[in-house]
Write a protein that binds this DNA or RNA. Sequence first.
DNA 1: CTTAGGG
DNA 2: CCCTAAG
Length: 702
Amino acid sequence: MYLLQFKVWLAFAIHDNHTYNHLCLGYWFQGRGLNKIKVEDSQICAFELLASLAGKLLQESESSASSNASEANDQPVIGGGGGVKFEQDDDRPLKAECLDHGSCGESDFVTQFSSPNSDQKCLLNEFPHAESNSILERSSVITNPNSSKNVGADLKSVICKSKNACENIPGKVEGSLDSRVSCDGYMDIGLSRQKRWDRLDNGGLIADPCSSNDPMKMCMKFPAVINSVNNVELPSCRDPVPSASIPRYRNGTKLGIRDDDGNFTRCNKPLTKSKAFRPPQRIGDRRIRKLLTSKYWKVAPKLKDCEFSKPAFLEGGMNSRYLKRKLSYGRERYQHNTFYKRRKFTDHSVVVTSDGGFSSESVCNSPDKNMTGDKNGAAIMFHGHQAAFHSKDSQVKFSIKSFRVPELLIEVPETATVGSLKRAVVEAVSTILGGGLRVGVLLHGKKVRDDSRTLLQSGITSNENLDTLGFSLEPTPVQVPPPLCAEDPLTLLPCDTSQLISRSPTTPIVDSGISDTLPDPALLTNLDTNIESNRESVSSHADIVTDNTLSDSRALVAVPPVNAEELAMVPLNQKSKRSELVQRRTRRPFSVSEVEALVHAVEELGTGRWRDVKLCSFEDADHRTYVDLKDKWKTLVHTAQIAPQQRRGEPVPQDLLERVLAAHAYWSQHQANKQHGKNQTATLKITDSHAVRNGVEDNHSI
DNA sequence: CTTAGGG
DNA sequence: CCCTAAG
């Protein structure tokens, strides 16, 4: 479980301004644990550190590859004071490490610490499977005396430091490090993911270059959102009706609601799941821009190293439900405290991004298909181009032409060697594939999740146009997958993918996009589209760089278009009518039991608190958003008011409809009263102010 | 982010 | 279910 944490951290360290501590973990995780990084300035942002590391690797590879080390000798230098030194504790050449371990993922990480003694392998086994790693356990594992001393010690210090830093987190809740701690990994993950989205300016809005109709707009909203999370309120606290009084199970109806003992489990859900993940469909542009803009390569002065990852420990017994908010809060602080100093970054750099993150929808799969079954979206690291051929009999033949790798951005300076570029690619891909792969099946752009169904049942038949069938490669969900399965994040990723696959505006969505856009199998092998889009991407990419270099000549070097073509996978987002690409969620008619739950919740909470309704009765029904509930209520009211003959779909019991009407009437009245009360208050205020104006000071007024 | 309402 | 305006 917690291995994932490292994995994710790594992902972030790579393209975020995480501090050394974060990167540290990621670094080791990468399988180069024996190569220490010494950082004088522990606040050095991950970027710089990574860049240094990349430079180091590059240098090594180059110097060893040829005698021409002049360029390579241009050691990466972290601007300003903090310095970074690389050391190797063993004899293995860095180069080898880079090539051989990059793809090992977490298993590699583990190996690092158990290698000294083969009998220590047992460590590995407990590791990934531990269902309740506590921080303490974690430390002990990492610092196992049998492990490399240096590594262990360093890691330990990192962890300790993190813990300390956490103590300064506002809102921290003292609590024992019980099994719940295992949730922190997820929180970290979710947070990190989200962080990617909101890593905009210091809470400020970036000029929106897009029209209001542009999907990009969505991204723009983040800063605002972030700023508004100050209100860390606990919904249940203000609930007139104790949430406990709201049965989670009613009439034997389960709505994917977990009982009160399900805290731990709940942690497995994406804590940050939310719409937040959805919008940034085009965050790519933004992110890339940032990456290329020197001004973002800053150092986090006094940022607490783990403000981000903290929440884990904080949540003593707090309802996980609120973690999200708390996290947001922490994130906000982070933003405010973060970048000031500016540091120039130069030399080699290898930036690897992977929007897909390590999410994995599979993670979301639960036995109860009905409840969590379908988050659209897939882990999306890859998307396959596939062609299917009909055949006689009832046989269905499939032929996967190729898979393309979307959302993989690799940057290297012009002076980098082809070899280093290859390694960078290998590393990037390896990182993603570290955990193995899974294959997803898409039909008409929708994921076919039920593995037990037959092709026929799934609609995959020779009669169908098999072009509508698609496959996707996804990172294997590690153990108990992390909550990255946030419904939205997943949805998001695929969108980026679609762009990568084709620039055709007609491309609906990632999934179906492939087949729809490339109906002719022959086209599947045609790279024109990709190349073209790449060029476009690159050019815009270069433009950005150019712009920035005007103010800072030390900015990164633009990636030559040539490289882009070589990397049929460096698809940067392009501006396009993404909005048209968004796929509609699959329709999910409410079941009677859901209606029942909804009605009950509304009876208790009223019609103006959909978020609470969601939380109380549908918290675990990830596919039901509060908006959905609101809409459903709307239709229910309507349904209840029309003649039974006009109703469609699964009939809703009349008694339920009557309750709907009753609740509707009741709360409508309630709202009216409230409104009336407000008016009265307003009147009073006016009266008061009037009184003040008249010199009748009254500090108690209002 | 949430709500409320139109599409 | 989606989209948006508003808060």
